[in-house]
Amino acid sequence: MRVEVRLLGPLEVHGPEGLVHFTGARRRAVFALLALRLGRMVSRSALVDGLWGEDVPPTATKTLQGHIAKVRRALAATGADGVVLTREPGYLLDVTRVVVDVEEFDEHVSRGRYAAALALHRGEPLADCPVEGWASAEIIRLREALAFAEENHAAALCLDGRYAEAIGQLERLVALYPLRESLWDLLMDAQHRAGRPGDALRTYRRVRTLLVDEFGMEPGDALRRREAVVLSRTGWTAHST
C-alpha cells in the first residue's frame, strides 16, 4: 500500500495503517523537504539549508541524522517502513510507494482540471513545517500555482455563464492578490456579462485608486481597454457612474 502525503496545507502523511505522527516541527519539515522532491535524492547539505537557512547550528548534520531516524520510526509505526531511502550523499523517498498531492495538483492544472486541483488545497502550503532556503522558494511556487489555478477556474466559470459564482470567487481573489491585474480584468468582465456594468466600472475605479494611491501607477492596458469596452457598450462616460 502507498503512503499519501499532503503538502498543500498542514503536513498530513497517511501510512498503510493510519496517520503518521511526527514529533516536532523539524521532523515534519525534514519529511516535507523530501516529499517536495519526490523520487530525487536530496543531499544532506540541501536538507540542512532547507531546515536552517543561514542560521546553521554547529551540530546540524548530526541533528539531521537524528531527525531522519525518528522520521523512519514514525513511518514504520504505520506500516511504512523503508519509505525513506539513503542514497549518498543524502536521502530520498521511494517514488514507487509515495503519492504527493503537489504532483496531483500539477497534473490537474496541466490538464485544465482546475476545480479538481483546487479541491486538493487545504491552506498555506507546508503550514506547520518551518523551512528555509530553497524550500521557501518552493512554497512561493506553490502559492503562484494556486493563484494561477484559481484565476483559470474563475475564467472557466465565466465561459460557462456562471457569473455569480465567478464574481464571488473573483472578489475573494482580488482581496488576496490585489496587484494581479488579470483578476480585476476578469472581475470586470464577469460583472459586465452579468448585466452589471455599473459594478464593472466601480471595480475599475477601485483598482485604479489602489494602484495610483499605493504605487503611483495607472492600470495597465488590459484594464483600460476593459473600461473602454464597458463604457462603449453602455453609452456612459467615465464621469457618469
Rank of each mutant, 00 (worst) to 15 (best):
S136K: 11
L75V: 01
E54L: 09
F105K: 00
E218G: 12
R87M: 10
L8H: 05
T96F: 08
G161V: 02
G79Q: 04
L201R: 07
V100R: 04
L85D: 02
V30Q: 00
L231E: 11
T86G: 07
R113D: 08
A137W: 03
E103D: 15
V212S: 12
G112P: 04
E17A: 15
L210Y: 14
L33M: 14
E214D: 14
V102L: 14
H239M: 12
A166P: 01
L170Q: 05
A119M: 06
L85I: 09
G39H: 04
V207T: 15
P16Q: 01
L47Q: 03
W236D: 06
V98Y: 03
A135T: 05
L38V: 06
S110M: 06
Q65S: 13
P219K: 03
F215C: 11
S136N: 10
R28G: 11
R37L: 06
A175R: 13
V3W: 00
E4A: 14
G123C: 01
V212G: 10
Y91W: 12
N152T: 05
V95Y: 13
K70Y: 05
S136R: 13
A119I: 01
A155N: 15
D49Q: 15
F148A: 08
S45M: 10
E107H: 14
A164P: 09
R224N: 13
L142C: 04
V84H: 04
G39K: 02
L211P: 09
T237C: 09
L93Y: 02
E171F: 07
R233S: 14
H108E: 09
R224A: 09
W52D: 09
Q169E: 13
I68E: 00
L93F: 01
G39T: 07
F215Q: 11
A74T: 06
L142H: 01
L179S: 12
V99L: 12
R122K: 14
G53A: 03
G66R: 11
L176M: 12
H153V: 00
V13D: 04
D55I: 05
T241Q: 15
V48N: 05
R202W: 10
G79C: 06
A25V: 03
R225H: 12
N152G: 13
V20F: 00
V3R: 02
V109G: 08
E218S: 14
L157S: 04
R44L: 04
T241P: 10
L47Y: 01
L126R: 01
V174C: 05
E12H: 11
L51V: 06
A228S: 14
R40A: 13
H121E: 14
W184Y: 03
T59H: 12
V84K: 08
Q191F: 04
A149E: 06
E107L: 13
L187R: 10
G112V: 04
W184S: 11
G195C: 05
D213P: 00
Y177T: 00
A115W: 07
P130Y: 07
V207I: 13
R37K: 13
E138W: 00
L33Y: 04
P125F: 03
G220F: 02
V95E: 15
A119L: 07
R172A: 13
V212E: 15
D189K: 14
R143E: 12
L34Q: 04
